[in-house]
Design a protein around this nucleic acid. Structure first.
Lengths: 311, 311
DNA sequence: AACAATTACGCACCACGTAAGGATA
DNA sequence: TATCCTTACGTGGTGCGTAATTGTT
């Protein structure tokens, strides 16, 4: 129940381009032009100066922009206020998540979130590399992202919400399976399975090796897989050992099909982060979902069924 | 460029009735119902409790109402701001005016106002008794009224903007036509033409007589006319004398077809007032028109063409 | 019975997308 | 020529009014 024209207008004003605004709003360029023209007709003045390759607000446009943002935020507040009273969320959001989070964390979180809310809440989840997710965010194809890697974009706010830890996983039949911990040097002796180059998890492992004066070259790396499931499968068959996020191996640890071992004196950690655009419009539902994630009981998620991970 | 749904919603909230709101907004009742239902669907809650003969805001409705008024006033401010910059007014207003003002003052004022503004400004003028005008105002059929009489309604704000004076008018052939002033008692000797009973002008004259211990009964009242033009015509033909507002006799004084005489020691005055609803929505254009009237140069209007009225 | 709100339905208009048309570097 | 905004046009969805329906006093 917001003012669509004003939203379009503000978007154009912010990105200084009709065409880019049309992509963000998911409208065609002519539609955006039309919306702006209606506003210009109504107020009887040009709101933008259009010189090729440059769209800027006129004096009148500046005034309208100031008020429009106020009005739009009042609409948003209205909804927030009413939701607070009724407890009824509604709408749909598009979430992007990087591989580990997207496959092993978000499905459960989303299901729990939907359980708490009316069926008017829709969530759309896309999984991809951290890079792809941040691109989708920048191009306004998703409303927020949940990623395990670092983000460089200036236009994105990164909000860490959980520390993730990678564990060395081995088959129950593996010689190490009864050990509590292993020193890094020992890793040289074992065939190790890694994710593809550039992957966030892979970089983390490389950093560990570098710290101990080792390098991937010295490792018995004979398999590089792009899929976490494929890696786990390979480890189960005792083809080698690997590092995986504890959220990705939860089930296998529970049913005993994999064993997790610590690295002596090291915790291989990284942050899971919620990322969103600095500019742009915020939806109440997005805020609520973010709050839900931040308040989520990850301990229960990780350690339920009386199963305890090594810490 | 306001939010029509919110306007409808606020109106219903204020008058606590779908049907009355529909009259005010000039929509059918089903249309109002539909608008409200869209809002209720959107927010997922009832906004009004409908018991027969009583429509009240729910808790959610109260919240929405608070925000809606804010939002609507922001829309109004936006327009005001932009108009201030561009100087372009637009829109249409419906004005009601009582007889004297409506016939002899408003046409000129409206024409001058329109001259100053773009052709996007439309003004609709209705003329009627003060009572009728205040009724039209209450039923939201006009946006503001300009009247010469008193208003009793609690729902209406009265804003005096000009002092009007009634003059005794006589034919140039009349025996008094060269006199500067006449005492009240002399009026008993002359046939006097009055407006119909209940008319504002008539009441003013009655009050004058009462003050001097006279009464209409003692007067040679043999004509009561409802039209100012008819009265002037009768006076011109020397059938009698009459009292008329100076704005109604401006032209005749200029061309000499009537003479105005003062009443000794008395000024018969009343106020012209702008009246508007206390509640309800204000349009920028209305504000501007009111400001225009208040700033109008009535002296020039009354005394142009080097013609001077007795003062 | 009377008044007030809702439901049903047809129509007219408006906002969108597709496609073609300028303007500018 | 490539990019970006505007114009032209056909279509679907929405909001309106008319008329019938429900519900409450």
């Amino acid at each position: 129940m917001e003012d669509y024209k004003l939203k379009v207008f503000c978007t154009v004003a912010e990105v200084k381009s009709f065409s880019r605004a049309s992509e963000i709003i998911h409208l065609t360029q002519p539609a955006v032009s039309a919306q702006i023209q209606v506003l210009e007709d109504y107020y009887g003045t040009k709101l933008f100066d259009r010189t090729t390759n440059n769209v800027t607000l006129t004096a009148t446009g500046e005034i309208l922009y100031k008020y429009a943002r106020e009005i739009l935020s009042l609409y948003a507040e209205t909804e927030k206020s009413i939701c607070r009273l009724t407890g009824l969320l509604k709408g749909s959001i598009k979430v992007g998540a990087s591989t580990t989070v997207g496959n092993y964390l978000m499905p459960k979180i989303i299901i729990d979130f939907l359980k708490e809310n009316s069926d008017k809440v829709k969530i759309n989840l896309r999984v991809g590399s951290t890079k792809k997710i941040s691109d989708l965010l920048n191009s306004s194809n998703i409303d927020l992202g949940i990623v395990e890697g670092d983000i460089k974009s200036q236009k994105i706010t990164v909000d860490k919400f959980l520390e993730d830890e990678l564990h060395l996983i081995v088959s129950p039949n593996h010689g190490w399976s009864n050990k509590e911990e292993i020193d890094v040097a020992s890793l040289q002796e074992e065939p190790i399975i890694l994710r593809e180059e550039g992957s966030g998890s892979r970089q983390l492992i490389e950093k560990l090796f570098v710290k101990y004066g080792l390098s991937i070259q010295n490792m018995k790396v004979f398999l590089m897989l792009e899929s976490i499931e494929a890696i786990k499968e390979a480890v189960k068959r005792d083809i080698g050992v690997a590092f995986e996020s504890r959220i990705a191996i939860k089930k296998e640890l529970q049913d005993g099909s994999l064993k997790a071992i610590n690295v002596k004196g090291e915790r291989i950690t990284r942050a899971f982060s919620i990322i969103y655009r600095k500019k742009g419009f915020c939806y109440h539902l997005v805020d609520e979902f973010v709050a839900f994630i931040k308040g989520y009981d990850f301990n229960t998620f990780l350690f339920n069924n009386n199963d305890v991970l090594p810490t």
